[in-house]
Design a protein around this nucleic acid. Structure first.
Lengths: 214, 214, 214, 214
DNA sequence: CATGAATGAGGCTTCATTCAT
DNA sequence: TATGAATGAAGCCTCATTCAT
C-alpha cells in the first residue's frame, strides 16, 4: 500500500506530480479544507483523475505530508553530516522550517488526525526528532547552545517560525522568517542571559504518541 | 452599532455571553470554520438563539475579535502606564499575546477578510500598534532593546508566540508559551550578539491596509 | 369554537382587530406566506399576542377569509334586494370582487386547503353562489344577460377581475379593475355577438366540493 | 450569457431540459416558492444536478421565464404576419395567454423582482408589447376593435385570462379559458355598447420600468 | 395579558465522492 | 484512462411556534 504495485505510465506519473504540487501550494495558501475540485483545477486535471490517483482527501494529505517530511529529513541529515559545528547544523536545520509551512499551517483537526495516524509520516517524524536531538546534543557539548533547553523546545521554536502572519507585503514576507529565526537563535546562544522558566521540554512533551512501533 | 439600542434582558444577556465564550474557545481550538451548530451546542443554546444574537458567522467572528482586541489593548495600555521600564512593559505586552491566540490562530481567508473589513477592529489594531511602537521606542531609548528591530518585528514575534503546537501534553502546553517567550526576549536584549538580516520591519510591512480613516 | 366563549376585553378586542386588518393587507400585498412576525409588526403587537388570539397561521387565514366572505355576502344580499334590475344587481355584485382580492390572490395550496376545509367559509361561499345564481336568473329573465352563461362562468369572471397585474402605476391600479369589469360586462350583455364555445359552467364545475352538509 | 460556451453532453442536455419542464409545471401549479428539492424530484435528478445547471433559484426562474416569453413572442409574431385581419390576429394572440400562465401566476415578489431585473426578459417583454400595439392599431384601423382601449388594457386582459381558478374540474379547466376569452372579445368588439370609465391604459401604465436600453 | 426570547425543523446550497461517457 | 456530470449528505440560515419574564 505504501509502495506502488507497478511503476506509473509517464503521463500518469506527470499527472500525479502536478496534483501533489498543486495540493501543496493550495494547502499552504488556504489550509487543507479547500474543495477538491480546486486542487484538480490548479493541477489542470479533472476531479476524476485526482480521485484515480488519490483515493480520497486523506490519502492526498498523507502523500503531501510524506513528501514534505522526507525533504526536511534529508536536509536535516545533510546538516548533521556536513556542518562543522553543532551550532551551524542547528541554524541550518531551523532554516528548513519554512518547508514545513504546509504541515503546520494546517492545524485543522483533519490534518492533525490524518498525519498522526499515518505510520509512514510518524516514522519520519520520529527520525527527524532523533536527528534534531543529536544536533542539540552536539551544540550543547560544544558550548554554543544554552543548556536549559531540550529537543522539545527546539521543535516548538521550529514550528513557530513557520507561521507566517496573514498579510505581509511580499518583501516583508521574504524577510520575516530570517529575522524571526535570527532573533530566536540569538536567544538560544550560550551563555544565556537569564534562566528559562519551567523545565526543558522533551519529545515526550510534544505528545505525538508513542514511537511508531513499525 | 457598537452600543445596543436597548439593554438586553437578563437571560438574553447571559446567552449572548455564553455564545461569545463558546465561540472564542472553539475558534481557538479548531479555527473559524466550525459548524455553527457546534458553537450553539457548546453555549447550550439552540442555533436559533445564536442567530438571533449574531446575524451570521461574520457578525459572530467580528464580535469575538472586537472583544479580544479590546482586552489586549487594555492590557497593553496598562503595561505602558504602570511598568517602570520599557523592557518590563515589553515583556508584559508580549505575555498578553496568549490572549490573541484566537485572532491569529484562525488564518482562514474568512477571518482575515472579516476582521480587515471591520472598522472597529481596525481602529483597535491601529491603536495597539501605536502603543506597541511607544513601548519599542522607550525600550530602545533606555538601551535594553536591540536597535535593529522595529514595531513590525515585534508584532511578528508577538503573533508567533500565539501559535500553540497542536498536540502538547497539558503540562507542556502550560509551560511552552513562557519558554518560547523567554527565549525570544533573550534574543531581543541589547547588546545583540549579531546583526539581523534584512532591515527593521515597520507597521507598513504588516500590510494591514491604510490606517482606519475614522 | 366558532363563537367566542366570553366577549373580549376592550384592549384585547382592539388587538384582535388590528391583527386582522394587518393580516388582510399583507395577504393581499404579498400572499399568505409572509412571516408571522411581520404581521405582528404591522399590527403593532408582539408575536406572542398574535398567537394568543389565533392559534396558528391556519386559524388566522380562516378568520381573515370568513370576514371577507361575510362582507361580500352582505353586499351581494344588498344588491339583490335593493337593485331594480338584474343587470344592475349583477354589475354591483361584480364590483364587489375587488374585496375578494385577498381570497383569490393567494392561490397557495395552503390557502386553498385551509379555506376549503373550513365549514364556516364553505357555508358562506355556498350562500354566495346561491345569491349569484339568483342574480343571473333575474338578469337572463329580463333579457339583459346573454343566455349561454351560467353561474360558474360569472364566478370565474368575478375571480378574474380580482387579479391585479403585479406592477401597475398607482393611477392605473385605480382605473384597471373598473375598465376590465366594464369590458367584461359589455361582453356579457344580451344580445350576444357570437356563441360561446363549450357549454355554460355551473357551480359543479367550480369543484368546491359538495355543498357543506352543515 | 445566453449561449453556452460548450454544447452540453447529451445526457446533461436531457437533464437540463427535464429540469426546465419540471420547474415550469411546478411554478404554474404552486408558485415559485416551492422547495428546490421538489423540482429536482419531479425532474428525476438530484438537487446537486439542478444546482450544477442553474446556480440558484433566481437563475432557474430567469431561464423558465425567458423560454416562456420566447414562445409567446414567436406566436405573436406569427399571428401578426399570418392573420388576414387585425381582429383575427388579436384573437390568436389572446389565446396564447395560456402559455403565460406560469409568468403571471407567480406574483410573488421574488418572481417580479427577478424577471424585472433580467435584461433578456425585459427586452422580450418590450418586443411583445410592441407587437401587441401593432395588432391593436390594425384592429382599430379596420374598425373591429373598440377605440377606447389601448395596448395597456389589452395586456391586462391578456393577463387576466391566465389566472386559472384554483379548483376547477378537469373538464371545466379545459373549457374555462376559451369561454372567458370569448366573453372578453365580445366586450372588446366595435361598436361598443357603452363608454369605458377612466382613459385608455398605455404601456406606461404597466409600469414595467423604462424600455430596456439595449 | 403582552412581550420578545428560545427552540428546532425545514429549505437552500456546497462539495466529497462515484460513475457514465 | 481522463473527464466532468450526478448524487446526496451536511452545514447555513429562516421562521413557525412555544415559553419565560
Amino acid at each position: 500500500m505504501t509502495t506502488p504495485e507497478t511503476p506509473l505510465r509517464a503521463d500518469a506519473r506527470r499527472n500525479r506530480d502536478q496534483i501533489l504540487v498543486a495540493a501543496r501550494e493550495i494547502f499552504a495558501e488556504r489550509g487543507a479544507d479547500v474543495a477538491m475540485e480546486e486542487i484538480a483545477r490548479r493541477a489542470s486535471v479533472g476531479v476524476g483523475t485526482l480521485y484515480r490517483r488519490f483515493a480520497d482527501r486523506e490519502t492526498l494529505i498523507r502523500a503531501v505530508f510524506r513528501e514534505t517530511f522526507q525533504v526536511v529529513a534529508d536536509e536535516v541529515h545533510a546538516a548533521l553530516t556536513e556542518e562543522p559545528t553543532g551550532w551551524a547544523a542547528l541554524t541550518r536545520v531551523m532554516r528548513q522550517s519554512a518547508w514545513l509551512h504546509v504541515s503546520v499551517q494546517s492545524k485543522s483537526p483533519t490534518v492533525t488526525a490524518v498525519v498522526r495516524a499515518d505510520p509512514d509520516t510518524s516514522r519520519l517524524r520520529d527520525h527527524l526528532l532523533d536527528m534534531l536531538g543529536e544536533v542539540v546534543r552536539r551544540a550543547q557539548d560544544e558550548g554554543t547552545l544554552r543548556r536549559d533547553v531540550a529537543v522539545g523546545d527546539l521543535a516548538l521554536l521550529f514550528m513557530s517560525v513557520v507561521n507566517q502572519a496573514p498579510s505581509l507585503t511580499s518583501e516583508a514576507a521574504r524577510l520575516a522568517p530570517g529575522r524571526v529565526l535570527a532573533i530566536m537563535m540569538d536567544g538560544l546562544r550560550a551563555p544565556a542571559a537569564g534562566e528559562l522558566p519551567g523545565r526543558p521540554l522533551t519529545r515526550v512533551d510534544l505528545n505525538f504518541g508513542d514511537r511508531c512501533p513499525d
